[in-house]
């Protein structure tokens, strides 16, 4: 007991409150962390992620994905056709997790709002959001052997196949 009436109990509860707050801050994803919902199961990553990053569906609006899935037999010059059950399952996931889909978060709505309603972009790197987010990346970085093209998300966003594009998880491969 001292002149101010502060007991060890007060100090202990203050200490506990600080620790609890610190833990909550530590664990919560930062509000600016770019985390996108991904289709459940392995079909999407196995099929779409076989040749390229399993791009988060929330990076394009549903109309873009519908067109892409309809043109899989000529997918950027390659035949990427899928079996009927996989095709239907993936299309359904893409539609529900799209940038303008029913589960869209703030970031996804921003992505879709920047795309004209009459456009169905097929390349994520051509969307306004992508360009805005990467405008500080100089050309020589993209040209590094392990990156090669801005579409190779997973080269730097090492957890892109889990929908995680947060800046804190970026690892740019050395030249």
């Amino acid at each position: 007991m001292n002149d101010y009436g502060i007991t060890w109990k007060h100090l202990a509860s203050l200490f506990l409150a600080v620790v609890a707050t610190a833990l909550v801050i530590e664990r919560a994803p930062a509000s600016d962390e770019a985390i996108f919902p991904m289709p459940a199961g392995k079909t999407y990553v196995n099929e779409c992620g076989g040749c390229h990053t399993a791009f988060a569906p929330g990076l394009l609006p549903a109309r873009s994905w519908r067109r892409m899935m309809a043109e899989l037999a000529n997918h950027f010059g390659e035949d990427a056709s899928l079996d009927e059950p996989q095709h239907l399952a993936i299309l359904k996931d893409l539609e529900s997790l799209a940038a303008d889909g029913p589960q869209a978060n703030m970031r996804m709505r921003r992505i879709s709002a920047a795309i004209p309603a009459n456009a169905a972009p097929q390349r994520i790197i051509e969307t306004g959001y992508f360009k805005y987010m990467h405008d500080e990346v100089p050309r020589h970085i993209w040209q590094r052997k392990k990156i090669g093209t801005p579409g190779n998300c997973v080269a730097c966003h090492i957890r892109a196949n889990e929908g995680r594009y947060g800046e804190r998880e970026v690892r740019i491969p050395p030249p």
Partner: peptide, 9 residues
């Protein structure tokens, strides 16, 4: 390896 077009490992 590395995909010649997408550069994916």
């Amino acid at each position: 390896g590395q995909h010649v077009k997408t550069f994916k490992a």
